[in-house]
């Protein structure tokens, strides 16, 4: 079974040289630590930046330089800044090759739910709906099951959707699944996990 960092490392292998990529909050943020050697990607922060650099050294924080998680960050030699309308123009316009983001539920048809649980505190969708509707490829990084062992990879989402039929690939702690016509296809099984365990933890239809 993969831990957070192993999931991030696996997600890092999705990146291709020259791509512009948006990383969501949580495990997806860790993917920045696992960009493979020789692969040059530019990270977009939807609050208006291409070319996101690492966190600043203590004492060098700049209140005018944050990422979409409101964390202080730094710029790189290739950094460009722009306003929010232009930021989402490049997202909506399909210029961002891939978004990697977290999920509460994914369905076998690629439906994604990651922004609200009815009856619980709703914070908002932020840019997630725009990203999943606009970018070239959507990769979800998530735990395969809930704390109670229930599958989060479902036939149909039970939670309100972030996007309809938008997910291309799921990277979970148990393995990698692709959304294909008719259901989900197993791409890879995590170390220490059997294919039978992966199938048992998946409610959605698995096609061969």
């Amino acid at each position: 079974m993969w831990d957070r960092n192993q999931m991030a490392e696996r997600a890092g292998r999705e990146l291709q040289d020259g791509w512009y990529v948006n990383l969501g909050i949580g495990i997806p943020t860790l993917v920045a630590n696992y960009i493979p050697e020789g692969v040059n990607v530019t990270l977009q922060s939807e609050n208006g930046m291409l070319g996101m650099g690492p966190f600043p050294f203590e004492g060098e924080e700049d209140p005018d330089l944050i990422n979409a998680g409101k964390q202080t960050i730094t710029e790189l030699p290739q950094t460009a800044y722009f306003d929010s309308a232009q930021s989402f123009a490049m997202i909506r316009g399909g210029k961002i090759a891939m978004a990697i983001l977290g999920a509460m539920e994914v369905a076998e048809n690629g439906d994604l739910a990651n922004w609200m649980i009815p009856g619980k505190l709703v914070k908002g969708m932020g840019g997630a709906m725009d990203l999943v509707a606009g970018v070239g490829r959507v990769v979800v990084v998530m735990d395969h099951t809930s704390k109670h062992g229930e599958s989060k990879v479902l036939k149909a989402c039970t939670l309100p959707l972030t996007g309809k039929a938008v997910v291309n690939r799921i990277i979970s702690n148990l393995g990698v699944l692709d959304v294909v016509p008719g259901g989900l296809k197993i791409v890879e099984v995590a170390e220490g996990v059997t294919e039978a365990e992966l199938r048992a933890a998946t409610e959605g239809t698995i096609v061969d």
């Binding site: 966190f55 924080e61 409101k70």
Partner: peptide, 12 residues
Amino acid sequence: EKRIENRTTRKK
């Protein structure tokens, strides 16, 4: 004031 909401740094 330019308050920082989520001060995040790395070690030198």
